[in-house]
Design a protein around this nucleic acid. Structure first.
Lengths: 158, 158
DNA sequence: TCAGGATAGTACTAATTAGTACTAATGATA
DNA sequence: TATCATTAGTACTAATTAGTACTATCCTGA
């Protein structure tokens, strides 16, 4: 039985990224790209967190985030705040700047969603997103734990 | 009702890409990356096609393919053949080189699939992949036709 | 208390992807 | 049949992402 999962997902990611990017432009959001949007989106639900935690939430590697956060900081959307307790840690904090952004971004997200789910019943959507979450959990568990059968179990983060 | 679809899909793409890439390495496929693999995968089901058709099948833009095909040609996996009929067209044709590759690649794909779908019933998988295809179709229809309500309808390809 | 390992973050490089702008060839129509 | 839009493909640039290698800090146990 041949499965196409990863192949289809890669395609969806590409196409939806292109569309989303164009939609943002049409809403005069020139400053934010889809990739940056995803990072802000994660911050909107839990602000003021260290980078490695943001990496966990976005499934991006911390090296990726360093670059992206540089850009978001330069455009004034976030600031880096040293965490008093642990001097290695730096907290990422949203600024006032994206208060307006947030509203528009939600609208575009909603438009994206209704485009994706055209012809779906509520139930189908629930099922589908449930499966997505399950798969993502499978993948993350594998990646972090390496799903090692019994050996070592040191849980290397990177 | 808030939907997470695109956010989840982006994450899946990232994580699965990292895992897939590592799996390929573990199977001593150093020459082929996941992205190149997806292109070859598309060719395996329909060889000897022009670039714009390959773009359709992979959901990649033709500019992307130009670059990727350069690499695949350099490593000897494909050749570019002028299409006699229309002198603008160039057909992409597989070489003998990936006869062996194909076997290993299928194994890795299968491993990926069973990892993704761990804990799924056959029925759930069918449903899920069905939904994926439906969403992808929605997105592609929108992107190519621009889903324009009634106006012009010129169907710009790019 | 201090030595070794783990953790937080960054710099640098490379791969993947798309957009803009181009050339060459084809087709449609006036 | 001359013109003009369309189509096929490419060059160049820029954004996103991750890997490797590094520094600084923290924690643990001998």
């Amino acid at each position: 039985m041949r499965r196409y999962g990863a192949f289809l997902i890669a395609q969806m990611h590409q196409v939806s990224g292109r569309i989303f990017s164009r939609m943002l432009k049409n809403h005069d959001i020139e400053t934010i790209s889809p990739a940056q949007g995803r990072i802000l989106f994660a911050l909107w639900s839990s602000d003021d967190i260290p980078i490695h935690e943001l990496a966990e939430k976005t499934s991006l590697k911390k090296t990726t985030l360093t670059t992206m956060l540089d850009a978001l900081q330069a455009s004034g959307h976030i600031i880096r705040v040293p965490s008093g307790a642990d001097r290695r840690k730096i907290h990422i904090r949203l600024t006032d700047k994206d208060k307006q952004l947030r509203e528009t971004y939600s609208q575009v997200s909603a438009a994206m969603a209704s485009l994706c789910y055209e012809g779906f019943s509520e139930e189908e959507i629930e099922l589908f997103e449930g499966s997505l979450k399950k798969i993502l959990a499978n993948l993350k568990r594998f990646e972090s734990g390496k799903d090692a059968p019994a050996r070592s179990r040191r849980g290397k983060t990177q």
